[in-house]
Each structure stands twice: as structure tokens, then as C-alpha cells.
Simulated scan of single mutants.
Amino acid sequence: MFEIVVVPPGADELSEQMGTKFKFWYQDEVYGKTLFKQGRPGTGENWAEKLACEFAELLGIPHAHYELAQWQGRDGVIRHGVICPSVVPDGARLIHGNELVGGKVTVANADEKVNNYALRNHLATRVFQFLHQAADIIMPPQAYQPIEGVHSPLGVFIGYLLFDALIANQDRHSENWALVRTSEGFYLSSSYDHGSSLGRNETDETRSAILTTRDRGQSMDAYVSRARSAFYPAAAPGVKVKAYRTLDLFQLACKMDPIAGRAWQTQLGRITEKQFGDVISRVPVGQMSDVAKEFTAKLLQANIGRLLSLEI
């Protein structure tokens, strides 16, 4: 089973302002500067973050490290969440995507019920072109262990998009990817913040219905096909557009570097169903229901099939 790290009482010396969740930085004896982030009650954010971390490791995606955790606040309430050591080395700075990429603002359809980030100027082709054109000054993540065919920051980023499609991550908005500026230069940051994935907000009732239905429109295949990214196509001012679906976004990115796209497909094809299942089984009792575990395994199987069937 995965360990549940106990964060020391009184560790909340610094607060983290970015985002909507309760979180704070503290100095961990093992990991150094570390973020505790509380999962919202009634969601699977904590187990989704931990599982995504382990799946990224299987795939060879450079990623932030997450552990399940709990912390007792000054009010005596025990809060459940995850911890994550900083992805930014001492003396370095994280530069988010919204600081790097400008362009036209795209407008989401009102019926998408998206968060505010979806209204920002987060154009897919602009991001891809930025990473491609700046390849001579931006390095892949320092934690990246090269795989054959993937040698550029864009190539690694294409891996992030395959990973998003695999876990149905719909939260790769412009503050959920970044560069790290160090004294040695600029690096693409490791992937981070994957809690909005794996259908973690669904109820067990909904999960059971999806797993057992004979209605193709409500099946797992239909469910995963609806997952959207936080990247948008270019549009004229005032024109309403929808975000790319996660699978379509990966396929679009592969047009910029098909060799990298095929390399990540190969990486994915090497992981067995048992390996994924073994990871899921390690979530402690009480953190994730049996239905949620079965649902997660089926979601991965559906997305693996879709990703491996793509012709790039």
C-alpha cells in the first residue's frame, strides 16, 4: 500500500496563494521544501494525484513527485491531501505558460461550464510553435531520462499531452505547464498538478452506471471521448470555440514532431495492464472505493486503445 505521510503540526508557516485549494509550503525532513495540498472533500483528488504520479513514472514522463498525506491543523481537524516536493531548484524561478505565450483571446462556449482559465489566450499552436522555435535556448526537464526519438522540449511536451489523454487530465491550463529558469539556462518544467484526472469527481453511482450500461452513448468509450484539454484553437475575436479534446490535441501536436509522438506511443505500448492494475491496487482502503479502482482501470484501458490506434 502507498504510505500516508503525516505532516508535522504547525508546519503551515507559509501559505500558497495560487489556485483554489487549501495548501501551504513547509520544510520536510526528507524532501526539503514541500507543498501540502488538501484534496476537496467528496472528490478523489488525492488518489488521482498519487496515481497519476505513478503512471507518469511508468511512462517515463518527468513529473512532480506526490505522496498521500494528512495534516492536523491548529483547530484539531485532520485534513487529507498530498505532499509534493518543489519542482523548482533553489535559486531558480518557475515561469508559467501564461507569462510565455501571448496571442488572441479565445472564448469558451457558456454551456461548457468551464473555469475562468478557459477564457485565457491559451492557443495550442502558439504553445507548440513557441517550444519548437525556442528549442535552442530551452532544454528538456533536468529530471528527464531520454528515450529514443525524444530529444527536445517540444518532444517531451508531446509526451505530457499523451499522458493527459491517457489519464483524462483536463487541467493543463496556462499555469499548469512552465519553464524553470536557473543560472544555467531555461528548462521545461516537469509535469505537475494532475488531480483533475481519472474521473475523480464522479460518484460511485455514476461509475457503476458507466461500467454496466449497454447504452453506447453512456459507455466508457463515450465517456473518455468527451475529455477536453485546456488548449484552444485560434479564433476571431468574439467567436465561441471549444477546447480541443485531449486525444485530438495530442494528435495535433504530433504533426510538429511525429517521431516524438510515435516514440511516446511505443513507451505506452510497453506498459502492461497488470502494471497499471498493480499501481491502482496500492491505494489504501478508505482512500478509494473498489468501484473507483475498477473504473480507473477501465478508463485507462479505453484510452490506451485509442492512443495506440492513432496513425501518426
Rank of each mutant, 00 (worst) to 15 (best):
T106P: 07
A56L: 06
G39M: 02
P62M: 06
A64S: 15
G39R: 05
E57N: 10
K104C: 07
V114H: 09
G149T: 01
G73R: 10
S152Q: 03
L58Y: 09
C84Y: 00
L59M: 15
R181L: 11
I158H: 12
R126S: 14
A110G: 05
E99K: 13
Q170M: 12
I61M: 03
P62D: 01
I138F: 02
E45N: 09
L166I: 11
V82C: 15
G155P: 00
A108I: 14
G91L: 02
R181W: 04
G42L: 08
H151W: 01
H122L: 01
G91I: 02
G73D: 09
G60M: 08
K113N: 15
G97K: 01
L154S: 08
D136I: 03
P41N: 05
L68Y: 03
I95F: 05
V105I: 14
N98F: 13
V107K: 09
G73T: 09
L179M: 10
H122G: 00
G103T: 12
D164I: 05
H173I: 03
L119Q: 14
G73N: 07
G103M: 13
A165W: 10
G73I: 05
T125W: 09
Y160Q: 13
G60T: 00
P89I: 04
L161Q: 15
I147S: 02
I158T: 10
P146V: 02
K104T: 12
G39I: 02
F130K: 08
H65A: 04
I78A: 05
H65R: 12
Y66V: 05
E99T: 08
L161G: 02
G155L: 05
P146T: 04
L94D: 04
W47Y: 15
V77R: 13
M139F: 09
V77E: 14
G91P: 05
E99C: 08
G149I: 01
K113Q: 13
R40I: 12
L58K: 13
K113I: 11
A134W: 05
